[in-house]
């Protein structure tokens, strides 16, 4: 392994034992970043990076982050799905680093859906 290593990793291990895992345990919300070829090509990794950075900067510990494959809506990527508490999942489309931070703060933390970024809100109207 490289130079930056084992002694430091041991210190980190002790810190990590006291903090929450990004992937496991209970959280009040879960954000799933879609990471198929289409998502990756249109910026999913940058969205994920921005999300994790924002969580770090704000010390947010109770939002779980995970990834999934293509959802079949490639032209709407990058997309994420947010599940807040026991409410229905919401898909957000055409995201970037700024939009995902707003979704984190408003939906995942406060439970308020960010309607302008949601893929669809409401139902069809009869003409």
């Amino acid at each position: 392994m490289a130079k930056l290593t084992i002694a430091e990793l041991r210190k980190i291990r002790e810190q990590a034992k006291r903090s929450r895992n990004l992937r496991e345990g209970e959280g009040k919300a879960r954000i799933t970043v879609h990471m198929g070829t289409c998502g990756i090509a249109s910026g999913a990794r940058e969205v994920m990076d921005a999300l994790l950075t924002a969580m770090d900067e704000r010390g947010i510990r109770d939002v779980l982050v995970t990834t999934s494959g293509c959802a079949g809506l490639c032209s709407h990527e990058p997309m994420v799905t947010v599940e807040y508490a026991n409410t229905a999942p919401v898909k957000y489309a055409k995201l970037d680093g700024d939009k995902i931070v707003r979704i984190l703060l408003e939906h995942a933390m406060e439970g308020r859906i960010v309607k302008e970024y949601a893929l669809a809100v409401g139902s069809e109207k009869m003409s």
Partner: peptide, 16 residues
């Protein structure tokens, strides 16, 4: 082998 059961996806480990 160093982590002693701590997950590699712990925030601190991922940053490392």
């Amino acid at each position: 082998s160093v982590l002693d059961g701590v997950s590699v996806t712990s925030r601190e480990v991922i940053q490392f």
